[in-house]
Amino acid sequence: MRAAALSPGLADPVADAQGCFRAVLDAMSRPGSVRRVPADVRPPAPLVPAAAAVLLTLADAATPVWTDAGPDAAAWLAFHAGCPLATSPEDAAFVLACGSPPSLGVLVQGTDEEPHRSATLIAQVAALEAGSGGWRLRGPGIEAEHRLRVSGLPSDFTARWGANRAAFPRGVDLVLCAGREVAALPRTTAIEEG
């Protein structure tokens, strides 16, 4: 096994994962808010700390992970999270996209009876900025409107998100990661371009 794949994971696995879980929970229940991941982790490139910490928190032996991050990063994730690596995004419970994310429609959608059996897309983006400018977000967890500026997603992403939202209760949820910051959009959140 390559040395990079075996660099340490979360410094304090229990406390870091708990703090990170809280950050994702807050981000998901207040869509568009940006939280800082309180974990000390130095993942192999091209993973950013937030994406790495989120996966080490959420993924385990029961959740296949697909990523475009390359063999070193994938092996590191598998080693520390204990997750199987899926060979294609269609088979994954978590999809970690460092580059352009795969089409949302091909990811596991869940069923009308069990919508929670859907994939979660974790997308690494260049920057996240809450409060003013960028997307206008509406939906459960948002009193009136949240603003979130996301840099580094493909230009047609909001159209793709609209199609994902139309399949409710099925569909995927989205976690956005930049550096140590995380924001999240459950499938119920509507995006309007600013």
Binding site: L6, S7, P8, G9, P13, F79, H80
Partner: peptide, 8 residues
């Protein structure tokens, strides 16, 4: 030695 994972 350095710990890479665990003990857990």
């Amino acid at each position: 030695h350095t710990r890479l994972r665990g003990p857990e």
